[in-house]
Amino acid sequence: MASLNVYSVLVVFLTCRAVMATKENDQIIKENNCETKMGFHCVLEAFTRIFETGSISNKCCGKLVVLGKDCHSALVKRTLENHLYKDLSPATIIVKSNQTWNIFLALINSRSLSA
């Protein structure tokens, strides 16, 4: 009986954490106007780079870096919460997202140093 209670508390805790994470991501996206600043074309390029196999232009790379890491992470996490992407491995996507961010940041930094 005690294990059932522990299990119930764990389920409630994890559900609350997921709801809080969703609200936190939505708040970051809303407060920073993350979705509209990049433009649909660049959002689509970034999405295919992270969630599928694709590339992103230097222009869109720059727009993403200007948005900041918080926007980038919140958008990726919110996409992972969508039931349409339930078959994707969140760990793999987060790793790919971080690699993509680091590549973009290095590209922008190298262009700034050479200017």
Results as ranks from 00 to 15, higher is better:
residue 67 L to D: 15
residue 72 H to I: 04
residue 67 L to H: 09
residue 48 T to A: 03
residue 36 T to N: 14
residue 57 S to H: 01
residue 62 G to F: 04
residue 49 R to I: 00
residue 41 H to M: 11
residue 28 I to R: 09
residue 22 T to W: 09
residue 30 K to V: 01
residue 49 R to G: 03
residue 21 A to E: 15
residue 49 R to A: 08
residue 23 K to S: 06
residue 83 H to D: 15
residue 27 Q to V: 05
residue 86 K to S: 14
residue 25 N to V: 02
residue 55 S to F: 03
residue 51 F to V: 06
residue 62 G to K: 12
residue 39 G to P: 00
residue 75 L to F: 04
residue 45 E to I: 01
residue 49 R to V: 03
residue 17 R to I: 09
residue 43 V to Y: 14
residue 73 S to G: 04
residue 41 H to Y: 12
residue 16 C to E: 15
residue 78 R to W: 00
residue 50 I to F: 06
residue 30 K to C: 06
residue 47 F to T: 07
residue 86 K to M: 11
residue 50 I to W: 05
residue 46 A to N: 15
residue 40 F to H: 07
residue 17 R to V: 08
residue 47 F to W: 13
residue 55 S to I: 00
residue 50 I to D: 13
residue 56 I to D: 10
residue 29 I to E: 13
residue 78 R to Q: 08
residue 21 A to R: 10
residue 34 C to R: 05
residue 71 C to R: 09
residue 32 N to P: 01
residue 54 G to D: 10
residue 82 N to E: 11
residue 72 H to R: 12
residue 19 V to M: 12
residue 40 F to N: 12
residue 49 R to T: 08
residue 34 C to S: 02
residue 57 S to T: 03
residue 65 V to H: 14
residue 56 I to K: 04
residue 70 D to G: 06
residue 31 E to V: 01
residue 35 E to A: 04
residue 46 A to M: 14
residue 50 I to R: 10
residue 83 H to T: 12
residue 19 V to C: 12
residue 33 N to M: 04
residue 45 E to L: 02
residue 75 L to I: 07
residue 20 M to H: 10
residue 61 C to W: 05
residue 23 K to L: 08
residue 71 C to F: 02
